[in-house]
């Protein structure tokens, strides 16, 4: 995996799109095949105003996204991918007004599918708020040529 991929492209992929930027995702780096993302706590991302805890939807968005980063980490390059299926188990409430971290690992990638496990936690991955199991479709067939990722895909648009 090239240094440029990890230092330049991955931070872009982590928070460069409008939604991920609006949610305030922060790229925390790669360690082996594990990749981490942080969401700084913000009052507008709360799911229940009585608790000041992040919305389930925010946890979902972050786990969906960090799982995609794990697929790219596994591939060592950018390919167009799309989430196929995402299951999230919520083990306990997140702590109020605290940043949430997520970590994901793509433990298997076939030519077309990436299989991912991911966790969300405040500071200890062994004490997760939520755990995810997800699969991603990898569109590597048309994605190998230079600039192929910049072309809109008519069949998916």
């Amino acid at each position: 995996m090239s240094d440029t991929f990890l230092t330049t492209l991955m931070p872009q992929l982590a928070s460069g799109a409008a939604h991920t930027h609006a949610l305030g995702f922060v790229y925390e780096g790669v360690n082996g095949d594990r990749v981490r993302l942080r969401t700084p706590w913000r009052p507008d991302l709360v799911g229940d105003p009585q608790t000041d805890v992040f919305a389930g939807g925010l946890v979902t968005a972050m786990l969906d996204h960090v799982g995609g980063l794990a697929v790219w980490t596994k591939l060592g390059r950018y390919e167009p991918i799309a989430t196929l299926d995402l299951r999230i188990d919520y083990m306990r409430p997140a702590r109020p007004r605290v940043d949430l971290l997520s970590e994901a690992r793509c433990y298997r990638a076939t030519r077309t599918i990436g299989f991912v496990r991911a966790w969300a936690f405040e500071d200890d991955p062994a004490d997760p708020v939520a755990a995810a199991q997800a699969t991603y479709v990898i569109s590597s067939d048309g994605g190998r040529g230079a600039g192929a990722n910049l072309k809109p895909r008519e069949d998916r648009a």
Partner: peptide, 27 residues
């Protein structure tokens, strides 16, 4: 809205936007 977009190339909504809509609808 622009801030819901996850893939600016297609463009496509972020899966997290759609999933959060579904979850909040269920709630």
């Amino acid at each position: 809205a622009d801030h819901l977009v996850g893939n600016p190339m297609l463009p496509a909504l972020h899966g997290g936007s759609t999933a959060a809509l579904l979850e909040l609808t269920a709630v």
